[in-house]
Design a protein around this nucleic acid. Structure first.
Lengths: 187, 187
DNA sequence: ATTCGCAGAGAACGGTCGTTCTCTGTTCTG
DNA sequence: CAGAACAGAGAACGACCGTTCTCTGCGAAT
């Protein structure tokens, strides 16, 4: 049934928006119902529980992040520029108006200690990002130790931008990344 | 009354431990009562509300962080080493066994959108840290743009260590900081 | 010694939330 | 056209939580 998948997708989109903007426990199933127009009965036929919705949201966010940085990297050619495109992507995100930090970090802080699946999803997303950076670093011909450094800059920029409410962190992280890359690169 | 202040301090310590380990909304006032041995009535005579306890906890955490990095910096002499001591301090913290990320970032993600005072406390703590790094950078004779870069490395190390469950991020951040400092420093 | 005030312990209250159930109407089948 | 399976809407349920209230006992002051 396409209708079922559409309803699922719409529910996930709305839940993502609400969870991200307000925090997960601050969103009730009833708010999700009124926001989507999907009855509680149907919501519970599409998902086992609120936790299942959250995990679907995190999965979706993982996909969006992955395709987002991939698209940013596709716009440039050299591995060096692809690495730097991460921080341009972040800058766009930070200035998007509704930015409130990394959804995985937020979910981890709120529920990571009580809901193991949330901690796992966050860990998986971060590992996936580290692998992505590691691949680019390798193709740039830089030592592997550069990858976690660049990833840490990206993580730090996300939390700094969230709490300060400014997108400047993306620029600072990019500048730092440029220096680290150029020092690490043989030339 | 000293007894009152002791009870307040004990309540704040216990609340900090519980909030940090489990998440704020996962801790009930009743758990706080049984953990401290302080009756609900007395807890509510010491604090106006659970939110007031949380804000006191965040204040205390701010003090502990400030004195912690100051103590680490006191153990070395040059501004360059004082800057690097931040990441050694972080490494000690990450390996302490109960590390679960930066309490301010966690509180911000969970409640920053619904409780303005929490967002404010987080912003204040990050600004205070940025000022601290800025002072050290200035005394090291490096350009001011280095400070946010080093702060971002520290923030990124905290979230990366929290989610990965490993202290390696402190070492990576320290290595990156060393490079950035040495490139920025006149020599 | 009696009374007054205070403090502790936990019951009670009001509200909320995740989840399920009931009831109504509808659509598809024979 | 009759009836059975289904879907929607929202009421209901059971549990929980922050906060307040009540009741009991103790200590101090007159």
């Amino acid at each position: 049934m396409d209708e079922q998948r559409d309803a699922q997708g719409a529910a996930i989109d709305a839940a993502d928006r609400l969870f991200y903007a307000r925090g997960i426990q601050a969103v009730t199933m009833d708010q999700l119902r009124s926001e989507t127009g999907i009855s509680l009965k149907k919501l519970y036929s599409l998902f086992d529980s609120k936790e299942a919705i959250l995990l679907a949201v995190l999965d979706r966010r993982h996909e969006l992040w992955t395709s987002g940085i991939a698209r940013a990297a596709d716009a440039v050619s050299t591995p060096r520029d692809k690495l730097l495109s991460i921080y341009d992507f972040l800058h766009d995100w930070f200035t998007d108006g509704n930015y409130r930090g990394c959804g995985f970090i937020n979910a981890f802080g709120e529920l990571g200690a009580t809901v193991p699946a949330v901690a796992l999803a966050a860990r998986e997303q971060k590992r996936s990002f580290q692998r992505y950076v590691g691949g680019l670093v390798e193709r740039a011909g830089a030592p592997a130790s550069l990858a976690p450094q660049l990833a840490i800059l990206a993580e730090g920029a996300q939390t700094t931008a969230a709490i300060s409410g400014s997108a400047d962190a993306a620029r600072s992280a990019r500048d730092a990344a440029e220096i680290l890359i150029d020092v690490a690169l043989p030339h």
